[in-house]
Simulated assay, not measured.
Amino acid sequence: MNIAYWIVAGLLALFYCYAGTLKVTRSRDRLRPMMAWVDRIPLPAVRALGTVEILGAIGLVLPPLTGVAPSLATAAAVGFVLLQTGAIAVHLTGADRRIALNVGLTATAAVTVWLAAGV
């Protein structure tokens, strides 16, 4: 189960680190082709969301790796489940109704919650 956690959590952390970095560093115009919802959210909120994603990615990896407060990995994974639940709501209330990636990320984060309980 430990190997499964590291594979799933590592992939999830890579995705969120990449997506969060884009939200923190790119302009609204450069984000728009990938994320149609950025026009409906204030830019500081997009930046804050990116920061939360980066911190969550760190939370998936660093606590179990160091052995310091490993329960934070479970909290980070639960946070990603909640984040994607909110993302699905944002997509469904706007013109962009593509939620397949969000559903996949929600399921992956839920599996990570389950695996983190065993780490």
Score class of each variant (00 low, 15 high):
9 A>M: 01
9 A>L: 08
10 G>R: 09
10 G>D: 15
10 G>I: 10
10 G>N: 05
12 L>K: 00
12 L>C: 05
13 A>F: 15
13 A>V: 06
14 L>E: 12
14 L>C: 00
14 L>R: 08
14 L>W: 09
15 F>S: 02
16 Y>D: 09
16 Y>E: 00
17 C>G: 15
17 C>A: 10
18 Y>N: 08
20 G>R: 08
20 G>Q: 12
20 G>T: 10
20 G>H: 10
21 T>C: 02
21 T>N: 13
22 L>S: 04
22 L>D: 10
22 L>F: 06
23 K>C: 03
23 K>Q: 13
24 V>R: 07
26 R>K: 01
26 R>L: 06
27 S>C: 02
27 S>E: 07
27 S>W: 03
27 S>Q: 04
29 D>E: 15
29 D>C: 02
29 D>L: 13
30 R>K: 13
30 R>P: 09
32 R>A: 15
32 R>P: 01
33 P>K: 00
33 P>A: 14
34 M>P: 02
35 M>W: 07
36 A>W: 11
36 A>I: 11
37 W>C: 06
39 D>F: 11
39 D>G: 08
40 R>L: 03
40 R>V: 04
40 R>G: 06
40 R>E: 09
40 R>P: 00
41 I>K: 14
41 I>G: 02
41 I>D: 00
46 V>F: 06
46 V>W: 14
46 V>R: 03
48 A>W: 12
48 A>H: 01
49 L>G: 11
49 L>W: 12
52 V>C: 08
53 E>G: 01
53 E>Y: 08
53 E>I: 07
54 I>Q: 04
54 I>F: 04
54 I>P: 03
55 L>V: 14
56 G>M: 04
57 A>F: 05
57 A>V: 01
59 G>Q: 02
59 G>W: 09
59 G>V: 06
61 V>S: 01
61 V>A: 05
61 V>E: 04
61 V>L: 01
62 L>P: 00
62 L>F: 11
62 L>S: 03
63 P>A: 09
64 P>I: 00
64 P>W: 05
66 T>C: 08
67 G>N: 11
67 G>C: 13
67 G>D: 04
67 G>Q: 10
68 V>T: 13
70 P>I: 02
70 P>A: 07
71 S>V: 14
74 T>A: 13
76 A>T: 02
76 A>N: 02
77 A>N: 13
78 V>L: 15
81 V>A: 03
81 V>H: 00
81 V>G: 01
84 Q>K: 10
85 T>K: 03
85 T>F: 15
